[in-house]
Computed example of a mutant assay.
Amino acid sequence: MDETEVVFPWTTADAGTFKLLELPPDLLKLVEAYIEGNASLNLSVKGGAEEDAVLCTDEKTYTMRSVVLSNSVLVLTPAPEAGEGMGDKVVIQDELHDIIELVPSLPKLHKLKGILRGLEYDEGYEDEEMMDEDEEFDNTQTGTFSYADAMHLQASEGELRRGLRDMRILDIGGRLRPIAPSYLNTILELILNHLVSHSLHHDAVPVDELSAAMKDEHEVDRQVTTQVLLWFGTVKDGKWEMNAEEVIKQIGLGILRPHKDAPIAEQEFLEKWKSAVGDTFESYISLKLLEVCTSARTSHSGNYLSSMSRDTFPAVLALTYFPSSSLPTDPAARFTDLFLTRPKWKAEDIAPYLADVAVDSKERDKLLLKYARATKDAEGMWYTARNKI
């Protein structure tokens, strides 16, 4: 029988030198592909002193949490002097009492709202210090935040890029600036008008021509136009293919945004929406468009609430702007706000407002089980607050 000699060279002072990571299946496949030379692999650990550590790949974020083992695990390595004909000899390097578990989590990008508050890019904005795209950005200036700064947030780079797009944050001369919603609507409406007036099909719009026209005719900076085009479509070989549904949806949300406290009648809203997009794109208009995700890269999220108005006779359907992005990111606080807004929610109505606090439907169901009470009737499943508010 083969024998292995075990050497104990370490003391208790050496304990804790090694940490064991348990890889979830998708990350294990990525590591194996990297070892086989079929994929690149970039891993980084992020998190401040007061934050939970996360591990980021290029596209995903995982929360790192310690799980205690019922049995200790010994870390063994071959002895340096072991060789052929000398028998097997291993050295105990450490004793582990826990492992680090990696749990898929949502990117922690909500801090951007606070960091960039007051730095909105609006119509007529002029900055004497604005730099060309090829100039180096000096992040020692006060009141500025760069893409490099944002890379320290608890999110993968892919999630950060998507987050900046979904939150409509521009990169102007190296500075991140959220575009003012009203100005974004103005730009999109000007783009639609340009396409119609020049008889351009929205599937193949010359980027240089459009950017130049926006600059010369409407004083919209070329950097701004170019980034807006990438938010609402794809650019290939100098041509922009517009995501028409996403553009029309954004314009609709822009019209609805002022009605957060005072609802607007559905018919009045639809008429304003049609007027803003023009006859050419009127066929895209539908309230369903505001409810669904029109981009495969964006999670489904809530945008508005509908109710029967009591201010008119007969009563009419009225819409209230109620975006999920305005709600707290802490699940308990979010459920409190949701049930203060409505004491009773249909399952299909509340689900969109949990998309950005739950990584998947399984986690969303766990949150509903924890914070809400489910009942069922002829109309379907309803949720009310589990605890009295």
Rank of each mutant, 00 (worst) to 15 (best):
P258C: 06
V277R: 06
L289W: 01
K260L: 03
V228A: 06
A265S: 11
I285A: 08
V247S: 07
F269V: 01
E266C: 12
F281N: 02
F269R: 00
L287E: 04
S275R: 12
E291A: 10
E246D: 14
I251S: 07
V235S: 08
Y284Q: 11
K236A: 13
G252I: 04
L287G: 03
L270S: 01
L290C: 06
R222G: 06
E219I: 08
W273P: 05
E245R: 11
D221W: 07
T294Y: 02
L289D: 03
I285L: 05
T234V: 12
A244Y: 02
H259N: 11
Q250M: 09
E268V: 13
G233K: 05
L290K: 01
W273E: 04
I255Q: 08
Q223T: 08
G238P: 03
L290D: 08
E271L: 12
K249L: 00
E219N: 12
L229V: 04
H218Q: 10
H218T: 02
L253R: 10
M242R: 07
D261K: 12
W231I: 03
A262I: 09
K272M: 13
E245F: 01
I285T: 01
Y284M: 08
S283C: 06
G233W: 02
R222F: 05
W231Y: 15
A265Q: 14
R222C: 08
T225Y: 02
A244S: 12
R257Y: 06
L256V: 09
T226W: 06
A262R: 11
R222I: 13
S286M: 01
D237N: 14
D237G: 07
K239E: 11
T294K: 02
E241I: 00
K274Q: 14
T294I: 00
H259Y: 13
